[in-house]
């Protein structure tokens, strides 16, 4: 896979432009609906993690994940848009194939997405739009001596799409949803191929440690399939998340693939303006 070297200041300029454009969209957003849907989900799954800075072997094991999603309809430039904020925490305890070594993987991910309706029918809708994603975490190898940890930190400008379908199952409403997110551009921290973290503390030049990413070196994707349904007075969400995070920068390969089944609790509420008495 080819790798490209970009000057650090050029990358910063590109990212600043990207964030500015996104913030412009945010600033022009107006609340259109006070109705907010908030879902808190918890799940278990299976993860496969590779980071060649620590080991050439793929480590596998169980994953725990928590996710909090908030979605609200707003207006941007007189167009209706869904504004989604999604925060995830996932943790995995992993073993190498021979079960002689273990790793701990932790990642926090925050996505802020604007979804513009593209197709709206009575039951079916499709929307898509830009997304900002920030990730921070670490991978710890329990038996490595001078290279026990790899830090994970990257931000992306991504594109996201969502399809929804409303139906009924045994007389109860069922809301099906599929969402996928694909990073387009980003910046990622990475040590160089053989660089020790000790050396990073000595050096004041980190230009080669902040890498420009795009699908050529960060082919990542997140797919979420969910079904919302009521049980009694509760509204629940059953979802499946396929999270494929991977990169190849500074000749270091890494991936974190996971399949997670989640159960969520849906809360819908309306913001009521409060005017204190004069």
């Amino acid at each position: 896979m080819p790798t490209f070297n970009y000057h650090f200041s050029d990358m910063c300029r590109a990212l600043t432009l990207l964030i500015s454009l996104t913030l412009c969209l945010f600033v022009h957003a107006q609340s259109d609906s006070a109705r907010i849907t908030r879902v808190t989900s918890y799940g278990v799954g299976y993860a496969n993690v590779l980071d060649t800075y620590l080991s050439p072997l793929e480590y596998t094991g169980p994953e725990l994940r928590a996710m909090r999603e908030s979605i609200r309809r707003v207006t941007i430039a007189h167009q209706p848009v869904y504004r989604q904020s999604l925060f995830q925490l996932n943790a995995s305890i992993l073993d190498n194939p021979a079960k002689t070594g273990s790793e701990i993987y932790l990642l926090a991910n925050w996505n802020y997405t604007w979804l513009k309706p593209l197709l709206t029918q009575s039951r079916f809708s499709v929307s898509a739009g830009p997304q900002l994603a920030a990730n921070i975490g670490m991978l710890y190898n329990a038996r490595n001596s001078n290279n026990p940890v790899q830090a994970k930190a990257y931000i992306n400008a991504a594109i996201s799409g969502m399809a929804t379908y409303q139906t009924h199952l045994m007389g109860h409403p069922l809301h099906l949803r599929y969402q996928l997110s694909v990073p387009l551009l980003g910046l990622m921290f990475s040590p160089e191929y053989g660089q020790a973290y000790y050396e990073l503390t000595l050096s004041h030049n980190w230009s080669r440690n902040i890498c420009f990413t795009s699908p050529h070196n960060q082919p990542a994707i997140r797919q979420l399939i969910s079904a919302d349904f009521p049980i009694g007075k509760l509204s629940l969400r059953l979802s499946y998340l396929f999270d494929l995070q991977q990169s190849e920068v500074n000749k270091l390969k890494s991936h974190a693939w996971s399949h997670t089944i989640m159960l969520g609790f849906i809360k819908q509420f309306t913001l009521t303006p409060y005017f204190p008495r004069q």
Partner: peptide, 28 residues
């Protein structure tokens, strides 16, 4: 154009589903 977005997403999904893996050796 809005109609291009789903096509772009589909293309990116196919590209980004390729796996990054390290060369593996057998346990022999």
């Amino acid at each position: 154009k809005p109609s291009l977005l789903p096509s772009l997403l589909l293309a990116l999904t196919l590209i980004c589903s390729s796996c990054i893996r390290e060369t593996t050796f057998s346990d022999t």
